[in-house]
Design a protein around this nucleic acid. Structure first.
Lengths: 189, 189
DNA sequence: TCCGCCATGTAACCTGTTACATGATTTT
DNA sequence: AAAATCATGTAACAGGTTACATGGCGGA
């Protein structure tokens, strides 16, 4: 089995967009793939060394003394294509919010409501970020062949956040929310 | 400290509903919390032993020779309440589908479309399961104080699946799929 | 009788995060 | 000159899965 399962994919994928240092790669992953992926230095550096030894990336002079810019090779691109074609290994689900709500009788309705309101604020913040991101990317990367794919992932985030918001409305209703500041009830159920 | 394990929470939570063996606990987690949580034997057994030593659960005669039924104690319930009140430790995001789509230019539009159609089928299957689950639970657990909380988590699953379906429609459009063979745009059902 | 499920546990093995150690370069 | 940022890497540890080892019990 693949040792560094999907880290290899993320690293090669990042370098497939343009060459960069390990440090920049991590920043790119954090800033651009952040809503759906993450990697830490502790994974990135060893993975890059392994990929270099396999000839999938090459080390070039970096922007500073002692730093290296990594460039993906032909074989690296082939390897990436291979990795992207492998079946998706889904992480076992672990949703801390739902775990708490499931045992809501023990936690208490009031705390549950608080959790839901927090989650609502988070989702709203995310939504705004996705909108901003979509606009920025559409402008900056206009015409790029990558753009539709990138926008697809942003769209996933938006729909997810919207789904969460819709759910929270329903969940608060299940908790028997009373406050009169709420929106009118919807017709169907 | 490093992020705490929520296994303790899940185990105490499970036992808070009713006493059972470690084996049954794992089955319950798989079958009932399955859409948003998972635990393996390798976690459950050591956790139960630790909880027993702390006096949070007690070991009783099990349904078979050599088996034990675990019962949550007063202090166990208090501990559970405490754990449920702790801040949620979110797992770093890792969505293998979005990772593949992001690098879709390398993978190729055709493969991307296939991935999306697979995901669509999954989401539709999930949706049906959630609907079935909601109906079954509403009937079986009618009047239970746990019911609204349980339904809340099912509702989360449903909204998530719906969000995925909505997203997939948009994503396929971004891929430049053929005309409107689908019926995506019109009102929610 | 034999198979499959209930039941308990452990050990090996990954995968991945965090903290640490180190230093160069840019900015203030 | 000090502080922030860029940059590289390692070691320790946490959290978790899988495979294995073991055995009782019920039904075909």
């Amino acid at each position: 089995m693949a040792r560094r399962s999907q880290t290899e994919t993320a690293v090669l994928g990042g370098l497939s967009m343009h060459p960069m240092t390990a440090y920049a790669l991590r920043e790119a992953i954090r800033d651009v793939l952040g809503h759906f992926w993450s990697e830490s230095f502790g994974q990135i550096y060893p993975t890059l060394n392994a990929l270099e030894q396999q000839g999938h990336v090459e080390r070039r002079e970096g922007p500073r003394s002692g730093s290296s810019t990594f460039v993906i090779t032909e074989s690296g691109t082939a390897r990436l294509r291979e990795l992207l074609s492998e079946p998706i290994t889904a992480a076992p689900p672990r949703n801390g919010l739902l775990l708490r709500l499931f045992f809501g009788r023990v936690l208490g309705a009031e705390k549950c409501r608080e959790l839901l309101l927090e989650a609502k604020a988070d989702a709203e913040r995310s939504l705004a970020e996705y909108d901003h991101l979509a606009r920025t990317l559409s402008a900056e990367e206009e015409g790029s062949a990558d753009l539709p794919y990138v926008l697809m992932t942003v769209s996933a985030g938006r729909h997810d956040a919207e789904g969460v918001l819709a759910w929270i409305g329903e969940a608060l209703a299940l908790l028997g929310d009373a406050p009169a500041n709420d929106a009118p009830a919807n017709g169907e159920s």
